[in-house]
């Protein structure tokens, strides 16, 4: 299969995923609702009406991570329940096309989620919004990591008898290094005296290293998750 054909297959798969999501709204509304409710719970759990520094980073990233888990849980459900895996195996496309397509779909879900939820977070808790622009870089690197790990973990969990349990169980310890990096980068951004950039580049490098390593791992192992 040529690169162009693989690209077409990738486009078809991503288009299918996004169209299905747009029509059924199976994951995204739940993720958004979950995130906003979690903010409200943090407001009372921490008893704060304004957040800054590592506390703001912690609330934002914890919420985004758990909202992402909801989407990751459902990522391969239609493949499993409606024969998508078999259909994909009938095509000559290599397994990694499906990996790339699912990573892309999940990445898009997370971007949409953040476009809605991060401004709400800022309105709820932040005194001023100048930290949001540099935060975009952190969000994108985190999304890539969540998408890669999420796709691998979701495809591992979808064929087990306890899908909803396995995804968070496997995913949470695996993303700890990424969470360390992104919270480390965003804590100074939410500083009380405007955004700071202490060790910002260093933490972005760690996040990028993490993404790179798991990109290779995903590429190496994914075909074995698809065999039957």
């Amino acid at each position: 299969m040529s690169v162009g054909q693989a690209f077409d297959a990738w486009k078809a798969l991503v288009g299918r995923d996004l169209l299905t999501e747009a029509r059924t709204m199976r994951s995204l509304p739940a993720m958004v609702l979950f995130a906003v409710t979690t903010f409200v719970i943090f407001r009372y759990g921490l008893d704060r009406t304004q957040l800054s520094g590592s506390l703001a980073g912690g609330v934002l990233w914890t919420t985004l991570l758990f909202a992402a888990v909801l989407g990751i849980n459902r990522l391969f459900v239609s493949e499993r329940e409606e024969g998508g895996f078999d259909a994909f195996r009938l095509t000559p496309a290599p397994a990694n096309v499906l990996l790339a397509a699912k990573v892309t779909s999940l990445f898009v879900y997370l971007v949409v989620l953040e476009l809605i939820v991060v401004p709400i977070f800022a309105l709820f808790f932040l005194p001023e919004f100048s930290s949001l622009l540099p935060l975009v870089a952190v969000l994108l690197l985190a999304n890539l990591g969540f998408s890669l790990l999420g796709t691998v973990v979701s495809s591992m969990a979808v064929n087990s008898t306890a899908r909803d349990l396995i995804v968070p169980l496997l995913l949470l310890p695996l993303v700890v290094p990424l969470m360390i990096a992104v919270t480390g980068a965003s804590a100074p951004l939410f500083g009380p005296e405007g955004p700071g950039y202490e060790r910002f580049g260093e933490w972005l490098m760690v996040a990028a290293l993490y993404d790179g390593v798991f990109l290779l791992v995903g590429y190496a192992v994914f075909e074995f998750l698809l065999e039957d």
């Binding site: 290094p177 360390i180 990096a181 290293l209 993490y210 390593v213 791992v217």
Partner: peptide
């Protein structure tokens, strides 16, 4: 395999 790769990465992040 995934967890084996994760071990050194995790040590780097936590040490930092």
């Amino acid at each position: 395999i995934t967890a084996g790769v994760f071990v050194p990465l995790n040590f780097i992040a936590v040490r930092m």
